[in-house]
């Protein structure tokens, strides 16, 4: 699979007046085209810094970030990079610019100079893709957190970006809204082929990804498919991460004497395995 974003030996140091705080140390990482990548890590692991390096909000102190082969350090390419890699931020209120939903979604394409009729088409398509079409005339401040984030997602896909970065976009919203945003992200990835990079500290979201990167004190501590990463309990302990709830539950059931297979990470898979085990034991 080809790489859409490439990080080569990237280090980043926050240069404040009091101290020099390294946030990322020698990180090398690829984001593959069309994949759903989750980046997890506890507070201060550098995951938000990583997100901001991916579309030239921050520039690496050392090393190189390449987006479709373009170096983010090249000032002339910043615009080209940002029209390919969009970003959904943490606070839903602080990224909506217009007083009406559809005007906000139109903001990106308007900046790109897309002809009016095509903007209309793109806005309608984007709002349908995130399931917010019926709210196109609404005022953003009257929407729920999950709805606002979906409007923000629509704003990004109306620009026809190849990749969307969710920078802890679910951290400030309620569980229902979180589910809505995650489902939207998954659908965009599976159905529209958009590359998704999900920065999160919710393990339940990470298990849905194709690939997980674990960051710890600015370094890549592990990288792999969710079932691999979450099977390594020593790694999770070391990096201060928790198992997803379903995996913890499966562990408890196992210690209670019910033989369940390894690598159960979602509630559905635990339920299925439990059902199979019950059938095996001829309880039902």
């Amino acid at each position: 699979m080809d790489k859409i974003i490439e990080l080569k030996n990237v280090s980043f140091v926050y240069d404040t007046q009091e101290e020099q705080k390294p946030a990322l140390r020698n990180v090398s990482l690829d984001v593959r085209r069309g994949e759903f990548l989750a980046v997890i890590g506890h507070n201060g692991s550098g995951k938000s810094t990583l997100a901001k390096l991916l579309n030239a909000i921050l520039l690496p102190t050392e090393g190189q970030v390449l987006v479709e082969g373009m170096d983010t350090a090249d000032e002339d390419l910043v615009y080209e990079i940002r029209r390919r890699v969009g970003m959904v931020f943490q606070n839903p209120d602080n990224q909506i610019v217009a007083t009406i939903v559809e005007d906000d979604v139109a903001f990106g394409p308007e900046n790109l100079g897309v002809p009016p009729a095509e903007i209309r088409q793109r806005v309608d398509d984007a709002l349908r893709a995130v399931g917010m079409y019926e709210f196109r005339g609404a005022e953003p401040h009257k929407l729920s957190g999950g709805q606002k984030q979906r409007v923000a997602v629509a704003g990004v896909i109306a620009m026809r970006t190849d990749c969307i970065i969710f920078d802890e976009s679910t951290a400030m919203i309620d569980p229902k809204g979180r589910r809505e945003v995650l489902e939207t992200a998954k659908r965009l990835c599976r159905e529209m082929g958009i590359t998704v990079v999900m920065i999160t500290h919710f393990m339940e979201e990470a298990v849905q990804a194709d690939r997980v990167v674990v960051l710890d004190s600015g370094r890549v501590a592990a990288e792999g498919v969710p079932s691999e990463v979450f099977a390594d309990s020593a790694l999770l302990r070391r990096t201060g991460l928790e198992l997803p709830f379903a995996a913890k539950l499966a562990g408890k059931i196992r210690t209670a004497g019910v033989p369940l297979p390894d690598g159960l990470l979602t509630p559905d898979s635990v339920a299925d395995a439990l059902f199979a085990a019950a059938q095996e034991a001829e309880v039902i």
């Binding site: 970003m87 559809e102 005007d103 139109a106 903001f107 990106g108 308007e110 900046n111 100079g113 990004v156």
Partner: peptide
């Protein structure tokens, strides 16, 4: 803080001022 966030968000959506901008609603 909001202004700071908003400025980032606008830059990420390729805002470069009025130059070369089109409008959806004519």
């Amino acid at each position: 803080r909001r202004a700071y966030d908003l400025a980032y968000a606008m830059e990420c959506r390729c805002y470069r001022g009025g130059e070369g901008r089109t409008r959806m609603k004519q």
